[in-house]
Design a protein around this nucleic acid. Structure first.
Lengths: 159, 159
DNA sequence: CCCTATCGGTTCCGTGGTTGAACCCGGAAC
DNA sequence: GTTCCGGGTTCAACCACGGAACCGATAGGG
């Protein structure tokens, strides 16, 4: 399987990975959520090869996850900002961070904490059902195809 | 930066990526959540090189995300099951699927639907605050370091 | 007894993506 | 002029990946 054929799979996870599933891309996005915006800042913080950074930023712009905005003229200089589509990746970042916090935090605890400005508390993300608001457990989820028929485990479609 | 030095970074996201950030690993986990358990089934469904599949499964077992269980003796044959730690990755999968659904579903709609067995509705995952239960927006999150001081944008630590 | 099939891998090699360093280019500052 | 800065592009070397063949234990069929 070639990497770019992922986008053609009938699977939303695969199509997401075709955009952000790269080794470096999620680290770029992490920094983008920390308000890093400039080429050299990404380069310095990540230690990524400039060639690769250039290409990753370009594909993220192509896919509408980042946008290139001139922040000065003469010489014209660009920065990369998260678009609305990019901001929608926040749950992905939060859930990855939370998983790392749970299983890989040392004695010192997680490297950083997240405070919810709305309620003022330190928090972690909880995945809940859009309909009933309850937390979602893996076993409480039934996968169904377009025909609304349940997918049998032994012939499960890509999801 | 070498890929395995990610695990040593003081960043929960980087440490998560050190385990599951590989090109293939999330696809393996997707299938694992769809109850695929055997080597040849992963191989056939993903089209992954056997060499690579073997190595990915081994590292997932090393990291305690999957466990190798003999399902028969003579000849002894193994299958790979999600551990509790692996099941905790469900929010990561759900949020990636939801993002793909939102931005890459064709006219036919998402390839599969998720039904919440608790409430019986088709749903998508919503990331909420563990403390107040409200949905979390990127701008409502304040990053703080171990000292409980807010992290300034221009000197933000890796998160 | 031999041949084949099944499952879960391992070994091999050629190709291609990644890396790190060097180079480039427009404009500003010294 | 010359140097510096931001934002890249070019290039050689390397290592990971893909594909195909092979292996080992066991069961089943002729």
């Amino acid at each position: 399987m070639k990497w770019n054929t992922l986008a053609e799979e009938d699977c939303s996870l695969a199509r997401s990975l075709a955009v952000i599933g790269d080794r470096w891309t999620l680290l770029v996005l992490r920094d983008a959520f920390l308000r890093v915006r400039r080429f050299d800042d990404f380069h310095a913080r990540l230690g990524i090869a400039r060639r690769v950074l250039s290409e990753r930023l370009a594909t993220l712009v192509d896919h509408g996850v980042l946008e290139k905005v001139a922040y000065q003229e003469r010489p014209v200089r660009y920065e990369y900002r998260l678009t609305e589509k990019g901001l929608q990746l926040h749950p992905v970042i939060l859930s990855l961070v939370h998983w790392g916090d749970r299983f890989y935090a040392g004695q010192a605890g997680p490297p950083v904490y997240h405070r919810h400005k709305i309620c003022g508390q330190l928090f972690h993300g909880v995945m809940t059902c859009s309909e009933c608001g309850e937390a979602v457990a893996p076993r409480d989820v039934q996968i169904e195809g377009r025909t609304s028929q349940a997918v049998a485990p032994d012939k499960a479609q890509t999801a």
